[in-house]
Amino acid sequence: MSNPADLKYSKSHEWVRVEGDEATVGITAFAQDSLGDITYVEAPAVDDTVSAEGECGSIESVKAASDLVSPVSGTVVAVNEALESAPEVINKDPYGEGWIFRVKVSELSGDLMDAAAYDAFCEQEGH
């Protein structure tokens, strides 16, 4: 598993890419792998306010469901509408085409990891 070095990661397996005052959020390769075939993504809507470490949606697979927890606080500015008809994109490309929503950031969660720390965290969780 290779988790991109330029991202930050949460303990609930979301990734966040901060660019200026905006951040893009998705779920990690580890998360999509443990969920299996993703069948539905309930993302926040544009203009919703999300808060760091707060639930803001959910991801469903055939046999499981997982809450989507925002790693940042702010206002949602974009949502990946492609996921509505093709949620499997998250399985195929979790860090690229499979992004879930974009936020105008007011605050980052204090509890985010870098790629190395997250690799170690997954190692621990997975086995």
């Binding site: 069948t39 539905y40 469903e60 697979s61 055939v62 046999k63 499981a64 469901a65």
Partner: peptide
Amino acid sequence: TLQAREQHIR
């Protein structure tokens, strides 16, 4: 199908 709505999962 769509069992993720249901009590045994959620």
